[in-house]
Nucleic acid binder design. Structure first.
Lengths: 210, 210
DNA sequence: GTCCGGAACTTACTCGTAGTAAGTTACTCG
DNA sequence: CGAGTAACTTACTACGAGTAAGTTCCGGAC
C-alpha cells in the first residue's frame, strides 16, 4: 500500500502554464462580470480556480493585469464581431447600421462580458490607463476607417475631424449600451441602431465640405 | 496669568459643522482631482484638512459619500454653465453649438474638476451608482430638452428616440472631453464644438419624420 | 461664577484585501 | 536514479476603509 492513499474526486493537479492561465482567465471573466472589479478579490478568483493567490500573481502580475487580460480578450471578440458585420455590408450606409446593430446585439448576448467592459473606466489611474486606451483605440480606429469610407477619395481629409467624429461615435455607443442595460424596457438593438444611423448619416457627409 | 498658555501659530481649532464640511469638501476636490479616486485615501484628506478621519466619516458617511458630494457640486457647476450658454443662444442651431462650446471650455478651465468627473465611472458598483446616475440624468434631461426644441410642436414625439439621441450626445461629449485631455495637441473647443454640431445638426431634423 | 448637555473632535483599534518572500512538491530529461 | 526546473503553497507584510469608545470644548441655565 505504498500509494493509492488519497484518490480525490477531481483529479485536477498540476497543469501546464498555458492551460492554467486559460483556466484562471475564464474564472476571472466570470467573476468580474458578476461582481465588478471592486467586488472581486484575488482570493475569490484563486478559490474559484482551486489554486493559490500567488500563482495568479506570478502569471498576471497584478489585479489590474488580470483585469486587463480579460478586457483585451473580450474587447477583441467584440471588435471582431463588429468588424465582420461592417465588412459584410454592401455599402457605407449599410455598414454603419450593421456595425451598430452588431455592437448592441453582441452586448445583449454577452451581458457579463459587457459588465467587464463597463468597468474598464476603473483603471483610469496608473500605468493600466494606457493599456485600456490601446484596447479602446482599436475600436476608434475601426470607426475612423468607416468614417473615411464615407468621404470621397480625392479630397484632403481633416484628421482632426475624423478623430472627433470617431471619438464621438465610440462614446455614444458606449453610453447607449450602459443605458440599455439599466433601462426598464430598453429599445431593441434594431431601433437603437436605426436611430443612431439616422442621426449621424447626413452629418457624416458634411465633413467632406469643410 | 490664568490663560494665555498655548497660543499656537494657526488658530484653527473647533469650527462649526458647516464650515468644516466646506473645508473638507474643498480639500477633497483638490486631492481627488490630483490623484483620482483610487489614489486618494481618507487619511490623506484628513491630514490635509488637519482633522481626524472619523470626523469625515461622521459628516460624509463613507469615501463614496465624500466623492459624491464633490461630484454633485462640480457637475452642478458645469450644468449651470452649459445651461446658461444654451439659454442665451438666439435659436436652436446656435444653442447646440453654444452648449458644446461651454462644455469644452469649462473643462479646459477646470482641469482638476474634470478629473473628478471622469472618475465617476469608478462608482459603478454599490448604492453610489444610482446617485451618479441621478447626477448625470440632469444633463441628459437638458440635452433632451434641447433636442425637443428642434422638433416641430405639433408632431408626436417618439420618446425612445429622444432618449437615444440624448444619451448619444452625452456619451459623445464625455468621451471627447477625455480624449482631449489625453491628446498631445487637442483641437480647440471651438473646433470640436463646430464639428460636433455639423455632425449632428442635420440628423436631428430627421427625427421628426420618423 | 459653575454646572451640565451636547457638539466637535481624537485615539486606538478591527477587518479585508493587494501583494510578497521563501519554501515545497512533482514532473522531466539525462 | 538523481538533478534541475516549473508549478505551486504557506505564511506572512502593508495599507486603507470603516468603527467603538472615549475626551475636550463651548454655550446656556441657574
Amino acid at each position: 500500500m505504498t500509494s493509492t492513499t488519497v484518490p480525490q474526486g477531481p483529479p485536477k493537479r498540476r497543469r501546464d502554464r498555458a492551460a492554467r492561465e486559460r483556466e484562471i482567465l475564464e474564472a476571472a471573466e466570470r467573476i468580474f462580470g458578476e461582481r465588478g472589479y471592486q467586488g472581486t478579490s484575488m482570493d475569490d478568483v484563486a478559490a474559484q480556480v482551486g489554486v493559490s493567490k500567488p500563482l495568479i500573481y506570478q502569471y498576471y502580475g497584478s489585479k489590474d493585469g488580470l483585469f486587463l487580460a480579460c478586457l483585451a480578450r473580450l474587447r477583441g471578440h467584440l471588435l471582431d464581431t463588429v468588424a465582420d458585420a461592417v465588412m459584410a455590408a454592401p455599402d457605407a450606409e449599410d455598414a454603419l447600421y450593421a456595425g451598430f446593430l452588431a455592437w448592441f446585439r453582441f452586448l445583449d448576448e454577452h451581458p457579463q462580458a459587457w459588465s467587464v467592459l463597463v468597468d474598464e473606466g476603473m483603471l483610469s489611474a496608473g500605468p493600466a490607463a494606457e493599456a485600456t486606451d490601446e484596447v479602446r483605440a482599436a475600436f476608434i480606429e475601426l470607426i475612423a476607417q468607416m468614417v473615411r469610407m464615407n468621404l470621397p477619395a480625392g479630397r484632403p481629409v481633416d484628421d482632426d475631424e475624423v478623430q472627433i467624429v470617431a471619438q464621438s461615435i465610440s462614446g455614444a455607443t458606449e453610453r447607449l449600451a450602459i443605458w440599455r442595460t439599466r433601462a426598464a424596457t430598453p429599445p431593441t438593438p434594431e431601433k437603437v441602431a436605426r436611430t443612431l444611423q439616422d442621426l449621424l448619416w447626413q452629418g457624416l457627409h458634411t465633413l467632406k465640405t469643410t
